[in-house]
Write a protein that binds this DNA or RNA. Sequence first.
DNA 1: CTTTTTTTGTCACCCAATTGTCACCTGTCC
DNA 2: GGACAGGTGACAATTGGGTGACAAAAAAAG
Lengths: 224, 224
Amino acid sequence: MESILIIEDEADIRQLLVFNLQREGFATLEAGDGLQGLEMARAKKPHMVLLDVMLPGMDGFTVCRELERDPQTAPIPIIMLTARGEEIDRIVGLELGADDYVVKPFSVREVLLRIRAILRRQAMVKTTPSLSRHDISIDPAAHKVRVRDAEIDLTATEFRLLEDLLRHAGTVRTREQLLNAVWGYQFEGYARTVDTHVRRLRAKLGTSADTIETVRGVGYRAKA
Amino acid sequence: MESILIIEDEADIRQLLVFNLQREGFATLEAGDGLQGLEMARAKKPHMVLLDVMLPGMDGFTVCRELERDPQTAPIPIIMLTARGEEIDRIVGLELGADDYVVKPFSVREVLLRIRAILRRQAMVKTTPSLSRHDISIDPAAHKVRVRDAEIDLTATEFRLLEDLLRHAGTVRTREQLLNAVWGYQFEGYARTVDTHVRRLRAKLGTSADTIETVRGVGYRAKA
DNA sequence: CTTTTTTTGTCACCCAATTGTCACCTGTCC
DNA sequence: GGACAGGTGACAATTGGGTGACAAAAAAAG
């Protein structure tokens, strides 16, 4: 679960954020001043920091700079909370290495949107590498598949299925596992739906169809 | 070294700016009234102009307009110095082509930050390369698009959409990603707005419409 | 300022591709 | 042969994207 550290001296605002973030499924950490926040960030390595600019003791800019300086905490994205909407604050904040800022008074929705945007952006960076097994190579970013240099057309589901099998090449994947990975956890349906998709996939793979092996009584496996 | 022209009649303020800018490593040019400033800008082609609104003779707005009109000086960014903090001044100033403004009395730090911000922004635009894929070439700086040597007219949104797609040519972009990149992260609306804009974009691209491919169940992709 | 034009975001409808399901077939292993 | 697991063809339901229309919003013109 994603943990978020809130560094904010006003208890009301902290409460508000904590309540809403938890409701949205985030774990929260709280700090009432800059120094405490800095220490907590170092100790707990949260996935994100919401940082108020106006803080007693060490101000938000300083905290931000410190977080950026420590290689341990530098990768943690920071969203600045600023009371004044002046351009100057924005520039300074982003120059410091903050990833985004929200101007107070903010709507909780806005904060959530930005948190999600940043997390998504991060998730994207760890882009899945392309895979090659035998004559099949897939490029998840482009969503393209080539069999022996010929590009083939797969539907979205077929693509995810093939990707999962290749990613676990050499390992048997049960229908259950495939349903979870390809269809998602909430999928409740006919287990043999998998069979149908494997069939369609094999048909499109043509001569390389045998890359996907049937393991009788267990599931399917891509040749290692 | 970056040279900055200061057009300001009050000697004290000019002094203050000159002193601080030089300390920060900028070269400075000075003009005490509008006409002189205009001439100096034409003659010296500074990298930036700090322009007071209230000037004897020719006022700042007029100078600004003149600078914008002359192709020789038009690319030079202008920061307006205004005594009144009224919204109207700001709008007029920016409408005239000024890049930013600072309200007097200003802090030197603020002015420096804005100068740096603009120079950084410029550096960014400069390094934004123009793109070409297949028959389409776009020039982000000039905001122009050519399809097979014929210039076509795109709206702002269409342009950003095309730019994003081309910049990620060969990679599928989900509607979500496009909304983030083209519309901004705070956009929360109908995801299929993207579809409509893709349609409009394709219509304008004419024969090259197929450069933008639909990846069913995933998103859109520009041909690599 | 008001009016006009352009741009933009939504929506409803349509059609085709995709998908899940089932009944039936085939092969394998006992 | 019979039981069982998986393959297969067919098919209906669903989904996803294209499209035209439209009103709100923004920009430009007067």
